[in-house]
Design a protein around this nucleic acid. Sequence first.
DNA 1: TTACGTGCAAAGGCTTTGCAGTCGG
DNA 2: CCGACTGCAAAGCCTTTGCACGTAA
Lengths: 162, 162
Amino acid sequence: MARLSTDEAAALVERFRRQLRERRLPVTRQRLAIAEGLCRAEDHPSVEELSRRLRAKGERVGMATVYRTLDALVAAGLAREHDFGDGFKRYEPLSREVAGHEHLRCVRCGRVIEFVNDRLERALRLTADEHGFVYHHHRIEIHGLCRQCRGTDLGGLAARVP
Amino acid sequence: MARLSTDEAAALVERFRRQLRERRLPVTRQRLAIAEGLCRAEDHPSVEELSRRLRAKGERVGMATVYRTLDALVAAGLAREHDFGDGFKRYEPLSREVAGHEHLRCVRCGRVIEFVNDRLERALRLTADEHGFVYHHHRIEIHGLCRQCRGTDLGGLAARVP
DNA sequence: TTACGTGCAAAGGCTTTGCAGTCGG
DNA sequence: CCGACTGCAAAGCCTTTGCACGTAA
């Protein structure tokens, strides 16, 4: 969930550090910087964006390392990967304390906000079961025009054939 | 919806043809072939796959044209675009007669099956509204292991840190 | 010291674009 | 005939990979 408390963020980084140590893998400055950068995020940054923020803080980290570390965080269950159809992936920290949540995205400005609806989630698990599937995960996104953008939009999204 | 009846498929192609004529745009052999190829599909083909099927039928159509025509079909509201996270987009014909539907995808073999749940859809519209969004569209996907694949899987998807 | 990580640049995979030739209306 | 389309190849974007060097343990 974006916007972790300071404690949650610290705990998440600590878990990452522990996982690395347990596996006898080097805990590098870069890995910690990336994990911390992600945990501090209040939104769902892309690799590019996260990289930019680290650079702004004076951290020198190559893009490839950001990609590799985010993959590791996702594999470790400490981060979540999203593709909202912007043409690139976005990431968010995944705290144990915080329940699963879904996303509402503005088609105009790209703003993403979160919401929780347990009933929805239960319904999806049930549906998977009804069709003989073993549930793994799901994806729910609502795309629309946010409050700030609705005034601006004048129907420019009408269907058109090139 | 994949698996359109012959009538629905013909109607969809006819609507495409009409839209083109109305806009004084050329109705080309390629465009019709692509529209028909998509309407005949029983699944959710990628550009690559659709292209391959056309070629198999003896239709010579360049990839760029397939991309451009699918964009046109989507913009015209006659097709739907999906990104199930395979690294490429997939398309399906969108018939007026058929209700909206969601997708259930096998994480192992990629098979996609469809289901309808009006209650879910209403809940999403309501949620958008509650957050001050003007609803545009949504996305619901369930990822799991299908009946055929569940026997094969032995937990090889466990989290791991590289 | 040694195995793994890092950074850079090159390579990949899908999609878009530029342009000369072609064709529908 | 004219404007739009097509096909090819080149370019674009995001992401992954190869490799020499650096560094945590």
